[in-house]
Design a protein around this nucleic acid. Sequence first.
RNA 1: GCCCCUAUAGCUCAGUUGGAAGAGCACCUGACUCUUAAUCAGGGUGUCCCAGGUUCGAGACCUGGUGGGGGUACCA
Length: 475
Amino acid sequence: MDKKEKIEEIPEERLQKLEKVKSSGVSPYGGRFKRTHSIADLNEEMEGEVIIAGRLIAIRKHGKSIFFDLWDGSAVIQIYLNCSFIGEEKYNIFQEGIDIGDFIGITGEVFRTRMGELSVKASNWTLLTKTMRPLPAKWHGLKDVEIKYRQRYLDLIANAKAREVFALRSSLTKELRRWLDEQGFTEVETPILQAIPGGAAGKPFRTYQDALKMELFLRIAPELYLKQLLVGGEEKVYDLNKSFRNEGLSTRHNPEFTMLELYEAYADYEYMMEFCEKLILNLADTILGKRQITYQGMKIDLSPPWRRTTFNEALRELYNVDIKTEDLKSLTQKLRAAKVEIPGENITRSGIVRLLEKSLASTFPTFIIDYPAFLCPLAKRKKDNLDVCERFELFAGGIEIANAYSELADPIEQRKRLYEQADVVDEGFLLALEHGMPPASGMGIGIDRLIMLFTDSASVRDVILFPQLGAVTQD
RNA sequence: GCCCCUAUAGCUCAGUUGGAAGAGCACCUGACUCUUAAUCAGGGUGUCCCAGGUUCGAGACCUGGUGGGGGUACCA
């Protein structure tokens, strides 16, 4: 597809209008434009002229006068363009050459129309950008989800809900950083390109470093590096990170996703549960201003303390199985007997998580605690029950939100447990542990999922500006 | 990976048992100096996702493919 063909795709009438404004001596693309106000700033008491700019989003032509709506991201205001006031030449160029979608600068006085609408009576207008394609939707909104995701800018123009979600996302991460700083945490950055991806079970993306002639992987989690910082003397660290997992996509999984991972020395998972409550409640209070939320029709009360139930209790309650006395195989058999569909040989960690997710679509956030040790190789075992680890996961609205544990600091046991699960292990991490890591607890929070919960979004794609989609066909 | 649903105008959608591609808005032409989903008169602007097949005839039926959605699997 060459450039010439691309130009031919632009609607003919837009090309004609472009020529029309050019031949009238109006530049179709402006430059720096000094505004005196944002549109939201405007009010009736203003004296003299204001200068504003924005995108023309609706127009009502009346022969010798035109009303149109100008939007600048802060607000919308009506502009009144009058032929005899602004002059016939300027009026006619506007009338013939300007479209919905164009960016316009306006100079004029604020006034109220007979119908009572706050407006600006234009004494001059400036074309700032000519638009070559029509904007979608006026009052249908934009519904085509593929266009929403591929051309997010159109979604942001057409749908207030989309603007709200991403504004909330921005203020949430901002407040998260502010609060963590207030708690004495240090924000750090850890490698995205890793030679041995660790800290989680996901399948990594592969890449290649030419200069070093080595295969590298995009990280699946920052965990092993953050723990090395504890060895190095940091006591409270976090990495608000993008991690990457080369697996199937779903309403809850995007291949690249945002996660908060934090570690605190001298803490354990009991402490971390309280910390988790405080962290999420602070966000709910400051960002949402409430603790009662609705997610996909479920009313959820965030008031603390949140329910805690052990992994074993949860499974016993739901399926009458007791993992204390069974291994993975008999657990799988019992669950099958309880009519749980389990493909493959044995149930997996994520299979169990999904069972819990489904059954915990409850009205309270719930900590599932004390997981079987074989499900968490990086967590510390409980003193009084070595088959179980000090780990919790937080579920709310049927979504897995957080995952945390008391960290395993024993390098000998850590080496054993990692090699039980994988052939290639990050020896650098084990070497660090051998130099001594203080007792600590760490937690990961799925930021995309937390935003889903806070914005009542059904899909993770609705809270990620540019979610991963398939290839566009070029036929 | 597997199963189900889905793709028609710029947008939102209709299209009957297979028989001349439609509506509203947008857009274009004209009228109109306080409208706000402006109004009035006129105009259809289309690779019916793609490639085959069945048929006298396919937007519709069949096969394969692609994109999208949902479910399921993988995600210590």
